[in-house]
Design a protein around this nucleic acid. Structure first.
Lengths: 115, 115
DNA sequence: CATTGACTTCACCATTAGTTCAAGTCCTAG
DNA sequence: CTAGGACTTGAACTAATGGTGAAGTCAATG
């Protein structure tokens, strides 16, 4: 069920070990424990972290991402990941529209500063 | 020189009084003091705050904005404000490009999650 | 068995952008 | 002159995203 250590997941996903533990505390990834209380992750942990990192670039908070990932079923199929991708894309496009709106407000110029 | 109180600037700019004081501490706006140690702002304070708020929507931090505003001369002319607008626009476009890059990475799909 | 590296928890540090609170002071209108 | 609202300070608190260090435990290897 869980075979990867913190260090292995960290290397595979490109984040620090402390970040891996942080993501577990935050519920983005789940870990089983060995008899000696060490974390053992499923192979999809690194994948979830990679998705989480992209989601962060899009502007989602960790708790947004927790909810996003919570929507995934136990053994996600490609279609499930696709749905997640679609949501991320929609979100990114929303942020882009916001920036365009800010651009418009800047362009409106004097209304900001009628001195 | 300075006639507006904290509350007046707050109303004119649409931010809270505590935010106005915060922005003064951070050097986004300047205040003279009355004999009784109360702040009195120039009429352009609200304008600077409005610009600052748009800049935040674009993703700049308060200290970025301090530097941006510090570049303004004492009595800014329209051209000075225009230069500032141009910088904000360039920055917004940069952020939009970053989001598009994130979109591309999401689109690359399976590379994120080759399960 | 002993070493070594990886792991554990817990708690504190940093940053950003403010907000809230308490206790006290100022200013203006009546 | 006095009441009330607006103002002052500084410190503590918030949320988000981790980083760091101490003290101790586990696991694999020679």
């Amino acid at each position: 069920m869980g075979t990867l250590t913190v260090g292995e997941v960290a290397r595979e996903s490109g984040v620090s070990g402390s970040a891996v533990r942080f993501y577990e505390r935050q519920g983005l990834i789940a870990a089983a424990r060995t008899g000696g209380n060490q974390r053992r992750f499923d192979p999809d942990a690194a994948c979830r972290i990679r998705v989480a990192r992209v989601a962060q670039r899009v502007g989602l908070t960790v708790s947004d991402i927790r909810e996003l990932l919570a929507a995934l079923p136990a053994n996600p199929e490609p279609a499930d990941w696709q749905g997640l991708h679609d949501r991320l894309i929609a979100e990114a496009e929303r942020r882009i529209r916001e920036l365009h709106a800010a651009l418009d407000d800047i362009g409106s110029g004097r209304r900001l500063c009628e001195l």
